[in-house]
Amino acid sequence: MTARIAYADVEVGTELPARTFPVTRATLVRYAGASGDFNPIHWNERFAKGVGLPDVIAHGMFTMAEAARVVTDWAGDPAAVVEYGVRFTNPVVVPDDDTGAEIEVSAKVAAKLDDEARTVRVDLVARSAGVKVLGLSRAVVRLA
């Protein structure tokens, strides 16, 4: 494990570079295939609306994967993430057009946990169309 960021160089409040991730229907079809999650709420508008959703929604695990990229890109080595958890608070609604939806992710160092293990807690916020899509979103990251 070879994190690029040194524990000594971060403070509580240090912001990670924020990112915006696009998601279209094509993204969801590809993710369904790669992950093996073929639940029709993620690709079939008729089915999604039939179960009371506003439209097709993104896989929660897709949103969780996108949010993780803010942390792994910052840390350098994805293996620096030793713990990662989220709550799925609202769905990412993905319309059937060429632009789809966007997932905006910001993150900051919320705590320095352990000087020996050089671990920090990063708190993430993910929003789409103005609503929070991930809550209690936290990663524990082991720095250099």
Partner: peptide, 12 residues
Amino acid sequence: VHGDQKFRYSRP
């Protein structure tokens, strides 16, 4: 519906 998800890693 999927409520929460968390992972604890010993290694990747």
